[in-house]
Design a protein around this nucleic acid. Sequence first.
RNA 1: GUGCCCGUAGCUCAAUUGGAUAGAGCACCAGCCUUCUAAGCUGGGGGUUACAGGUUCGAUCCCUGUCGGGCACACCA
Length: 585
Amino acid sequence: MTSFEQPNFKNHFAELLKLAASKIVTSDSNARIELTRTKQANHGDYSCNLAMQLAKPLRKNPREIAALLIEALPDSPYLEKVEIAGAGFINLFLKVSAKQRIIANIFQNSNQFGHSDAQNDKKIQIEFVSANPTGPLHVGHGRGAAFGASLANLLSAVGYSVSREYYVNDAGRQMDILTLSTWLRYLELHGITIPFPSNAYQGKYVRDMAHLIKQAHTDRYVHQSEFLLQDMPLPNQDGVIDLEAQLNKLIANSKEILGQDYAYIHNFVLTEQLGDCRNDLMEFGVVFENWFSEQSLFDNGLVAHAVELLEKKNYLYHQDGASWFRSSDFGDEKDRVVQRENGQFTYFASDIAYHLNKFERGFDLVIDVWGADHHGYIPRVKGAIQALEMDPEKLEVALVQFAVLYRDGRKVPMSTRSGEFVTLRELRNEVGKDAARFFYVMRKSDQHLDFDLDLAKSQSNENPVYYIQYAHARVCSVLSQWNEDVATLHDINTESLTSPMELALLQKLIDFPDIIESAAKEYAPHVIAFYLRDLASEFHSYYNATRFLVPEIPIRLARLALIASTRQVLCNGLALLGVSAPEKM
RNA sequence: GUGCCCGUAGCUCAAUUGGAUAGAGCACCAGCCUUCUAAGCUGGGGGUUACAGGUUCGAUCCCUGUCGGGCACACCA
């Protein structure tokens, strides 16, 4: 068998139809040539609705146009026949020999099969997770992580040069609260007890960090409590205590008392949490090229710079002592504060600077993966980008809905406030990395996800992860019993593969590159999950109906080549989702 | 109240972005292991795509309205 370029029959036929159309349409009809895979075998392998699209501009019967198109269609070595059907569909039938050649192609490209260089190394950045480093990641972050990582793999597979980035919110008040919380726990360890604020961080990990500081520095950061509690805000005339104001005062006092040491504790807790987060994600198979510090934007004057730019371009005004950005000029529902009365920049201000910085780094496209609750934030960020005379089209925001855990058919209660949340690490420990990665992306990302813990753990046919992995393991098992070098299958004769099941499986393998392409285009990893389910199903049927290790050598080898290439595609698809492909189960 | 998202089989979800008879899994029923892993396979029932209109050759998809659910409406991050 001669080697040949990776064929994409869909694109190939689209090209032929385009040529045919150019012969019968003189003016630009702006008709899109779109081929779709057919659902029914008697409709052929690919179908095109071009004739129906041209019916109006040409003022002709679609079936008539279809006939003209077919007449003008250039010859193709892959085409068995063409038919007109229904209202004017053009149905294309692939030659069996063309289908069989996919096997050689899969072996040739091995773990790159399905990948393309269509995007020609265009620079794309995808920012995801970006959770505050103030505590362990929880299951909500997990979905963003799984989605972002899979999407990044998909984008890379279609030829983008991908940069994965985690935006570290190390500058805000939340970090101060964590610093204070840790120091209070540390003081407790030295017998100095101050009522622990209810709105400070309650988690056990805070006590753990306090222990670490004590171990390393004994009583170096101990100070007496009366200083810490001085000038606390009092209840108002209604007896209501402003807890947030109290917390702010505690933070301010501790900064004063600790002096330079405050920065040490701040840095310590940040490093601890970030390290934990990085480790957690690594074990989840999620890695980043870049961890971008929000604080660095302040340190380098980029926040002030961004705000000045807006000022210069007359998109700021001053009211009630604050600086407002005219985001309502760009479709936002109201204007937004970028600098407060006390001179502090808002989170939005640093986010403008961050996006300005992203664009200045020269990415062709920037993707932000956010929780769906942030959707209201999009207009102001895009507005700022536009105000700074950059192209808002170059920013794509992918929203990910929350995941709700179910155990024993009941919702697992979760709320950050009560500290009652399931961490990503706990989830991984319970269901394993593979099930977690797969379940997170098996639904469309903008849909709520019901995550069934019992199902994810079950080792049964109900569990889609095992179903797919099992198909892979089965192939491995057959090949190991065959006990010869798989490489010898790479260029064997596959003419005997003509049964309906074999043809269906071949067609499924042919689809893989198109599946990757559309999944990447739509930012839809779930498409891969569904595809793998289908492919595994096709394989299991074949496995059940066919014996592979038959005495007739040519048939045996052809069948083994088919299942070995199926294994390759299963493996490539699972890799895109960050799921392992075990050889034994 | 305003804006965005959603409503598809008993349950969880798809549907190549306007295409042909709306598909999978689970659950339910009936079969298949002396044979390469039964974590598998084969067959079956199950639908007014929330509802009412509209646009056109053609609508789950686009437009309008109604009902129901989620989210967001900070000088928080």
